[in-house]
Design a binder for these strands. Structure first.
Lengths: 349, 349
DNA sequence: GTTAGCACTCTCTCCCTGCAAGTGCTAATT
DNA sequence: AATTAGCACTTGCAGGGAGAGAGTGCTAAC
């Protein structure tokens, strides 16, 4: 009865060599290449035997009989779990990131766009940043600014320092003074409450409580409660999609198209990056990704925070064949810097 | 001496048929196809003669000796100027647009994103919306909200109803009350002034004027005047880039890559769409576009307004071979609806 | 347990050929 | 004078080997 081979030191060295080489060249790796380029001190024939074992163990695949081997999902998984070497960013890259995050005046959206761009430029893969979920935030201040006699600009600021705004067409006329009164009342009564809960129910409760302030306020609240749907808010910032076209795995336009179409759908990206929280960099490889069309890709991501609150996620999407050690370092670096900048802000009352 | 042929009724019918057919099939059009599909009542041989004339006039090109003809830039130009039929949006498309723009509560960014997406979905080309230029706007209200003892959120609202915000790290500590005072003073003194002018000079002038309010205000102003750089603000919203990969002209990945990379650069898009104002839809064909890499594309765009003020531009980018009549109608439709929604807001004091 | 040798498999490239499409030109026709 | 039929010519493209190259698995020797 044939017995299953077991993983050992040399096999893992061979696996490491294959992953490293395949990542670098995009060509299936043969036994001779390994023997020549990576001094393992054994002949191609020995390596062939090891490779056959590694294939039996599920770490390698063969595109066709007479080609070299490429790593399987499982092979990559073993590689990132045990073999990968983290490659810190170069001084130039550090400098670039420092410049992005050192500014004394910045706007969140520009910041995360720059972060996504830097990630994609440095890795030549697609950089992604998932923005804040307003649902978890709490109201800090609410203002209604008149734009027309029956139109106002609703602006609210959350405790995490984000500003949201919407134009509201009121079904009745209102004066500037009235809007100001309503703003004050709203701020006074909603401050500290979670944005997520500002649905119909909460506003109707508020409406009853404040009913005595008159018919106008009542109408406004009623209207607002009907109109405001939080959710759908979480924005995703993507950069460097064209870099994917440099990768040989996407020289087939049809394949590229399917993935590009996905990368334009914020909902898909958000779902794919919706992982259990963790304070380390997360790696998803091939079929580990929930979305079928991304099974030829890998995703490396980590959460960023503002103080003790998780805000969103920073990540990189690319073909499975990517330089994991480098990308992990980049994602980690960007995440920490972003959290660093955001972390210095706390709710102050 | 051979004389130059002249454009006549029949030649223009032939040109029209060639453009229409090429747009539909993406294949060079031969004389027989024209004779068969477009009833011009003449034989292929006659059409061949007309085609030779049209080529001599510069309206057609031949990819190689034994292929059919395709329109040149000049041919498309003649087509859009004289021959094109505007094809109104279908009721379903109208309905989709209506839904996007009918909402009673909306946020500008979501609105233009939806507009860009609708444009790209309907045309299967890339939809683009250039956002407002904050420079032309005037301050309406300014607020500094405390985020930490030495950090504030600067929020300003413009007279056109746009909200901008930035986090400001102050080089000194400040109390909430002080920030509120400064906010009021800033609003009071800057209201109505153009955002563009809020550079060093203007704030320093303000600083002198308000100097008596104390050292803190002075410092804040000094800091703000050093930090705030408007400009770079104009944001561009792009949607449907992957649709381009459906077009046969982009089955060459390298070509696609060059153009995709451009479409990620907001500055390039802004420049390319920076046309002299006009209240009609503008068409740029091939080499008419300022950017070399887009010479295989055409751009159809129009400005949108809020009342009497121009805000930005809505457009569609695609290969030169596009259904001009349809796209023009779409761009026009979206522009008018967007202007309609924005137009109802005016500065009210 | 390791390695050299070797037959075998598979893909990829190159080249060749035939085919299809379309043209321009000439001569005949209206 | 304009139009059309006919025909020789050009060109791109698909299909079909042939041959090279890379890599493997297996066997037998070390």
């Amino acid at each position: 009865m044939p017995t299953m081979p077991t993983m050992d030191e040399r096999k893992s060295r061979v696996l490491q060599a294959i992953v490293d080489d395949y990542v670098a060249t995009a060509e299936p790796v043969g036994s001779r290449t390994i023997a020549r380029k990576y001094r393992l001190g054994v002949s191609p024939a020995t390596i062939r035997n090891e490779m056959a074992d590694l294939e039996e163990l599920g770490y390698l695949e063969q595109p066709h009989t007479s080609a070299g081997r490429i790593p399987s999902d499982r092979g990559y998984r073993y590689y990132v779990d045990w073999l990968m070497e983290i490659k810190e960013a170069t001084p130039e890259e550090q400098e670039r990131l420092r410049r992005i995050f050192e500014r004394k005046v910045w706007e969140f959206e520009s910041l995360v766009r720059a972060a996504a761009r830097a990630l994609s430029d440095m890795t030549h893969l697609t950089g992604v940043v998932v923005g804040p979920q307003s649902e978890e935030a709490r109201f800090r201040e609410i203002r209604l600014v008149p734009l027309a006699s029956d139109r106002a600009l609703l602006v609210y600021i959350t405790d995490t320092g984000f500003v949201e705004n919407a134009v509201v067409d009121l079904p009745f006329e209102v004066t500037m003074v009235e809007l100001q009164q309503i703003s004050s009342l709203l701020t006074e009564h909603l401050r500290g409450q979670r944005v997520e809960l500002m649905g119909r129910g909460a506003l109707q409760a508020l409406q009853r409580e404040l009913g005595r302030y008159g018919r106008l306020l009542e109408q406004t609240l009623e209207f607002l409660s009907e109109s405001i749907q939080p959710g759908e808010r979480r924005r995703v910032y993507v950069s460097g999609v064209p870099y994917m076209l440099e990768q040989p795995e996407f020289r087939d336009v049809q394949k590229a198209r399917a993935i590009f179409a996905l990368l334009e759908q914020e909902a898909v990206l958000e779902e794919v990056l919706n992982l259990p929280e963790s304070d380390t960099v997360q790696i998803q490889i091939g079929a580990e990704i929930k979305v079928e069309d991304l099974h030829d890709c890998s995703i490396i991501s980590a959460t960023y925070t503002a103080g003790d609150r998780t805000i969103g996620r920073v990540g990189v999407i690319g073909p499975r064949r990517m330089d994991y050690g480098r990308v992990v370092a980049m994602v980690d670096e960007v995440t920490r810097r972003l959290s660093g900048v955001l972390g210095r802000q706390r709710l102050v009352d």
